[in-house]
Amino acid sequence: MRFSEADGRKVVSTSTATTIAKVAGFAVDPSTQQVVALHLKKTDGDADTVLWSALTAFGVDAVTVAGPDVFVVAEGETAVLLDKHHSVKGKRVLTEGGDDLGKVEDLEFDAGTGSVTLLITKTEEIAGKRLTGVGSYAVVVRHA
């Protein structure tokens, strides 16, 4: 599944069957190449983050969670990865050798595991496991 498809997707509570939020962003941990948390909008309250591990499922039509109790206020490492300086989409990709591969236009991830499978630029599709850094200046990838 691509970030562009998943963005804005409804987050539905399994206990009440109501929409309690929408997906607004993704936190990607470069050390594990995993989506570790989702940033949410339209939540009821300040808690606007849900950890990947707290999801019931990332489904085709909706993200399901047990209820609003699983929403948290991002802190520590997760907060850093979620801030706008660490968003992967739109950022330039540099190889560890210092060559620019273009800007990330989209990402593909495994909806079952949260693994990032592809970084997509205008000219290239880069395997997610090459990801090694997500910083304020660039996304860094290992040599193929």
Binding site: P30, K91, L94, E96, G98, T132, G133, V134, G135, S136, Y137, A138, V139, V140
Partner: peptide, 12 residues
Amino acid sequence: KRPVVTLAGEDI
């Protein structure tokens, strides 16, 4: 003028 960038993606 070329940027010096860490493997974590920060230009230092």
